[in-house]
Design a protein around this nucleic acid. Structure first.
Length: 478
RNA sequence: UCCUCAGUAGCUCAGUUGGUUAGAGCAUCUGACUGUUAAUCAGAGGGUCACUGGUUCAAGUCCAGUCUGAGGAGCCA
């Protein structure tokens, strides 16, 4: 019977004077042959367990090594020491699992994030990753809470898909055909009619098209699931497997879409601030210490909590693509030829351009709308000017694009015309086009990269540090 | 995929123009101390210098290739 244990997070809030308290956890440090800093993952704060000298046998005390797991029964008392208000005087200590200190890789000292990535199975036991993953949980919970409160239906779109129509990137192939000698048709090509699904299939790059099918029946839906891109991307903000939130709303236009996205982002940040303040404070401090090592001009102007509060209390800047280009053309950076890539109407803005807008010019999240149709996807609604589409990207400081969305093209003729122009096969997407044939409605939606959101809220700088077991090129350990 | 940088003890790093037996801090172990807060003090153990090949009397150090990691770019969320 283990469930009598009290979680350390709750225990630390209790009044001293309790006897027979049961706690279990992993030893962080054992000082002076007497003081155990015990952690159970419920919070970064440890409970100090005091094993009074002479009360416990030598053999047990020897086994109190870093990350050994123990069960403690004792009395919660006011601590005479300085570092904590309460502590447990142990009457009983039981070793549940030993941890060989010669072999255990985590030591009571600072480790680099790169090293911890190599022992991703153990890194949750550090303060940094403890905080990051508790915040990640909190954000995930807030996402469901937000949409549930608004009456959205949570929809699970398929992971394996036969459509590669969206062109969102390179896909991972899914097949049960033998790799060495697959069946071949008359033209010498792999014969996918022999494959498991009778056609070529891939891991999904987006649930949006299926999401639209849900939205045009339920009104409002959202997806929250894994997404896969086989791009050979080696950056601090790309993963081959990541989680994406994709709401899709019928009877919504671009402005509704922007309003929802902004409310949504603020809501989940607020939830984390309300429920995980101690973790965010720890991450705030961690970031501040890390930034001390950077040259002054590379440091962020705001601390983590300051930045989150700033986002919560300020409106996101909303500008059109055309206005964005004008700002860039008028910028000192452009005039001094600081940009590596040229700026003119029609370009797909480069990282340096987006960073300038967000980090230098506005210094807050920016929503850019109405992009040229030629640099955007086929399903985005064409504006009356014939040149732009009703798209919106939200750019966040330090992260770049965190949300990409649009009002969808609901007019069948314009949609098929655009698909033909862009060589998207209309026959394969017959089911998608059916939504425009039978009771089509104006609708809109967006996709938000969950890990990028977690990056933003935790102040971490590498996306591999905000997902438990990152999948990146040449890395699928664990 | 491209560009740049890196790979030396469990970790973080030093290692001079190529030259004896490759060093430090932390961690670990042993002992001392015992109300400590990453405890402190003393001592000890710990290395295929990423891998393969080459140059040289001699390579951790120079050259080539490979692998791995990091940062930036592209692609994007």
């Amino acid at each position: 019977m283990f469930n009598k244990r009290i979680k350390i997070k709750d225990l630390l809030k209790m009044e001293p004077g309790l006897s027979g308290v049961v706690v279990m956890g992993w030893v962080r440090t054992f000082r002076n042959n007497q003081f155990i800093a015990l952690n159970d993952g419920s919070t970064n704060a440890n409970i100090q367990v005091v094993a009074e000298l002479g009360q416990f046998d030598e053999n047990t005390l020897k086994r109190l090594t870093t990350s050994s797991s123990i069960k403690v029964i004792g009395n919660l008392i006011a601590s005479p020491g300085k570092g904590q208000t309460v502590e447990i005087h142990a009457t009983h200590i039981e070793i549940l699992g030993d941890s060989d200190p010669e072999k255990y890789p985590l030591q009571p000292k600072k480790h680099s994030l790169e090293f911890l990535r190599e022992i991703a199975h153990l890194r949750f036991r550090t303060n940094t990753f403890g905080s990051v993953f508790r915040v990640r949980h909190s954000l995930a919970f807030a996402i469901h809470k937000f949409f549930n409160e608004k009456g959205f239906v949570y929809m699970n779109t398929p992971i394996i898909t036969a459509s590669d129509a969206e062109g969102a990137g390179e896909m991972f192939h899914v097949t049960t055909l033998p790799i060495g000698k697959p069946p071949v048709n008359e033209n010498g090509q792999v014969d996918y009619t022999e494959d498991f699904f009778g056609k070529a299939t891939n891991l999904t790059v987006s649930g949006q098209l299926e999401g639209e099918l849900g939205a045009t029946a339920f009104g409002d839906i959202y997806t929250f699931g894994p997404t896969f891109r086989a791009e050979n991307s080696n950056t601090t903000r790309h993963l081959a497997e990541f989680w994406m939130i994709e709401p899709e709303m019928a009877f919504h236009d671009l402005e509704d879409n922007m309003n929802l996205a902004e409310d949504f982002i603020k809501y989940i940040i607020q939830h984390a601030v309300d429920n995980n303040l101690d973790d965010l404070q720890f991450l705030d401090q961690r970031l501040a210490e890390e930034e001390k090592l950077l040259p002054t001009d590379k440091r962020s102007e705001m601390g983590l909590l300051e930045k989150l509060n700033f986002v919560l209390t300020n409106q996101f800047e909303r500008i059109t693509y055309t206005e964005a280009i004008d700002i860039l053309l008028a910028s000192p950076a452009y005039k001094k030829k600081k940009f590596q890539y040229d700026v003119k109407w029609g370009i797909d803005m480069q990282s340096e351009h987006e960073r300038y807008l967000v980090e230098k010019h506005f210094k807050k999240p920016v929503i850019v709308t109405n992009y040229p149709k030629d640099i955007k996807a086929f399903y985005m609604r064409q504006n009356d000017d014939g040149k732009t589409v009703a798209a919106m990207d939200i750019l966040a400081p330090g992260i770049g694009e965190i949300v990409g969305g649009s009002q969808r093209e609901e007019r069948l003729d314009l949609l098929t015309q655009r698909m033909n122009e862009m060589n998207i096969p209309t026959e394969e997407l017959w089911w998608y086009l059916d939504t425009r044939r039978f009771g089509t409605v104006p609708h809109a939606g967006f996709g938000l990269g969950f890990e990028r959101m977690v990056l933003f809220v935790t102040g971490m700088t590498n996306i591999r540090d905000v997902i438990a077991f990152p999948r990146t090129p040449k890395n699928a350990e664990f």
